[in-house]
Simulated assay, not measured.
Amino acid sequence: MNRRITGRHYKTGLPVEVSVTEGRITSVTEIAVEPSVANLPWLAPGLVDLQVNGGWGLDLNTLPLRPDTVLELSRRLLSKGVTGYCPTLITNGTAQLAAAASAIAEAVRQDPGTARGIVGLHLEGPFLSPEDGPRGAHPLEHIGPPDWEALCRWQEAAEGLIRIITVSPEWPGAAAFIHRCRESDILVSIGHTAATPEQIREAVAAGAVMSTHLGNGTHLTLPRHPNYLWEQLAADELYGCMIADGHHLPPALLKVILRMKRGRAILVSDAVSLSGMPPGTYRLHIGGEVTLTAEGRLHLAEHPQLLAGSAMMLPDQVAYLAGAGLASLAEAWDCASAHPAALLGLEQAAGLAAGAPADLVSFRHDGVTLTLMECWKNGRSRSCSKYSKD
């Protein structure tokens, strides 16, 4: 199938025509357009979200997880411009994690077309800090030290889909575990940690490549220096993931992460099942009673200072960064597309370039609000209006 898609290049602002053949971009050509360029929507590569727990009432961590839930979430995310994502399973019992991982793998087998956006499974826990604060909403009873045999069982249940695992390197033997993950092509991200700076450095040397929602999942107060946040910011080897929803991190810290990490700064939604839901108090399968405020802040009901995930999807986080003047529109978009794709080694990292997959998004941006128009996955179009009110 041949297709031509016209829009304003998200980096240059110039009108371009993108030619697509058999799901790939064959050329990107500047064109002259009438009426004015301002009437054209922006055109950008598809978004890649490394941390999605759910959305629209769909929860990947409520058991039994059904393949239909995974597939519907994939459809909904595509309507939000997310052409690649990592379903994320958080801390749970050994059998429960295996069952959830198996359901995701079954969804991929049942409907590989719909599930094409799944670029790997992110296992966030259970090898995290047991301390209050760093542990966040993860249930203490299932937290424990790194266990290679358990990870292998989960990977078998996932049929090889596990691509990222979040680990706290404060546990004895963590460095050896990280090294084994690296050898098995599983990316290790440091997160929910109370590790010392020395333990952070040891984890990086062993092969850790990322920081999970840097600045969150921490103690409420830290030593001025040294501490585990400074150490991760200073590690050039680490990609830094951030949640830019106006609640998880203040603008100054977002600015620091963007400046320190540059091409390794990544936006993640950390979206939970309550994303797209009305404000109120809810009970989650993991995390217990939580409150979603009218401003979109999601926190533990009994501990308002502790967040329980995000209720904002990636397009709105891109708009937040750009609208706050923390990054240009192109820089913010790359944090949610090219940068995470590069970390995973995906072809989408090439962006709007000949030879890249035709994973594209068109949108309008008024300086504050970003409105999605259309999304293409491997050149196949999908309107973004179906869930525009969600």
Rank of each mutant, 00 (worst) to 15 (best):
N2I: 11
R4V: 14
I5R: 09
T6E: 13
G7M: 07
K11V: 14
V16Q: 08
S19A: 15
S19M: 05
V20A: 01
E22I: 02
R24W: 00
R24V: 14
R24E: 14
T26C: 10
T26M: 06
E30S: 13
E30K: 14
I31M: 11
V37K: 13
P45A: 01
L47V: 04
V48E: 03
V52I: 12
L60K: 10
L60F: 07
N61M: 02
T62C: 11
L63N: 03
T69H: 08
L71D: 06
E72W: 04
L73C: 02
S74W: 07
L77R: 04
T83M: 11
L89A: 02
I90D: 08
T94W: 12
T94E: 15
T94S: 15
A95T: 14
A95V: 13
A99Y: 04
I104K: 09
A105Y: 05
A105P: 03
P112K: 04
G117I: 01
H122M: 03
F127C: 03
H138G: 09
P139Q: 04
E141A: 14
I143S: 07
R153S: 14
R153G: 01
Q155L: 03
E156H: 13
E156L: 12
A157I: 08
G160W: 10
R163H: 09
I164D: 04
V167A: 05
E170G: 08
W171C: 08
A174H: 06
A175Q: 15
A175H: 08
A175V: 06
A176M: 04
C181D: 09
C181M: 13
R182D: 11
E183V: 01
E183F: 00
D185T: 00
I190Q: 03
H192E: 06
P197W: 11
R201W: 12
S211I: 07
L214I: 07
G217T: 09
G217C: 08
T218W: 12
N227M: 09
Q232T: 02
L233S: 02
E237T: 13
L238A: 02
C241H: 02
M242C: 03
A244N: 00
D245H: 07
G246T: 06
L249P: 06
L249R: 02
L249W: 07
P251I: 12
R259Y: 08
M260S: 15
K261V: 07
A265E: 03
I266N: 00
L267T: 10
V268R: 11
V268E: 09
V268N: 10
D270R: 05
V272H: 05
M277I: 07
M277A: 14
P278I: 05
P279G: 08
Y282V: 11
I286A: 12
E289I: 11
L292Y: 05
T293A: 12
T293L: 11
A311N: 02
V318K: 03
V318S: 09
L321T: 12
G323S: 15
G323H: 12
G325P: 04
L326T: 09
S328T: 15
E331M: 10
W333G: 06
S337L: 08
P340M: 10
A341F: 10
A342W: 10
L344N: 07
G351Q: 04
G351E: 05
L352K: 06
A353T: 14
A358L: 05
F363S: 06
F363V: 10
R364F: 13
R364K: 11
D366S: 07
G367E: 11
L370F: 05
L372T: 05
M373V: 15
E374K: 13
G379N: 03
G379T: 02
S383H: 09
C384L: 06
K389S: 14
D390F: 13
